[in-house]
């Protein structure tokens, strides 16, 4: 069961783990949990899949990955799972989501490609299209131009 204090804990971890000797103790102090309790609840949340990945969240842009494109595709409903699995075989595909089609935005599969520059990303996309046989699939390519906000989700308790 998710408990109310878990939301407080997730709010803390969204801010980022302090870089010091006993980070979980520092985090716990702010929300009235002991170091052991923080570790116990985070382990629980991770085991249940409520935390998918605990670790360093890198800033791709500073590290030389300046281009990222979101590509949205119109894939026949029955083929979505297969196509998504094929796309994920490419290490440059960093996200792959199915989302609903809207009349004004008729695309149902979203993937993200990160690369060092736009040309690299375009080449990777060409490779993806060829190897997955997506030449005739309708799509839109959306390169990001500015980041207005990037941070962990903020969770609030009930």
């Amino acid at each position: 069961m998710i408990e109310n204090k878990d939301y407080l804990l997730l709010a803390q971890i969204a801010e980022g783990l302090p870089i010091c000797s006993h980070p979980y103790a520092i985090m716990g102090e702010k929300i009235g949990l002991s170091e052991a309790q923080v570790i116990e609840r985070l382990t629980y949340l991770q085991d249940r899949g409520m935390i998918k990945r605990l670790g360093i969240i890198v800033k791709h842009a500073t590290l030389g990955y300046r281009a990222n494109a979101m590509i949205v595709w119109r894939i026949p409903e029955a083929d979505i799972d297969f196509v998504a699995q094929e796309m994920l075989k490419f290490s440059f595909v960093t996200l792959c989501y199915q989302r609903p089609m809207l009349p004004e935005w008729p695309y149902n599969l979203y993937c993200m490609i990160h690369g060092k520059n736009k040309v690299t990303v375009e080449n990777q996309l060409a490779q993806l299209i060829e190897q997955c046989g997506l030449e005739t699939i309708e799509k839109q390519i959306l390169f990001s131009s500015r980041c207005f906000k990037q941070r962990g989700a903020v969770y609030t308790a009930n």
Partner: peptide
Amino acid sequence: DEKQCISRIGAIIPPNQIGVSTL
């Protein structure tokens, strides 16, 4: 962190596991 190479040490929460989210 100072060089802005990392955003934070944090957790990735799958969408809709806790609360609801949307793009």
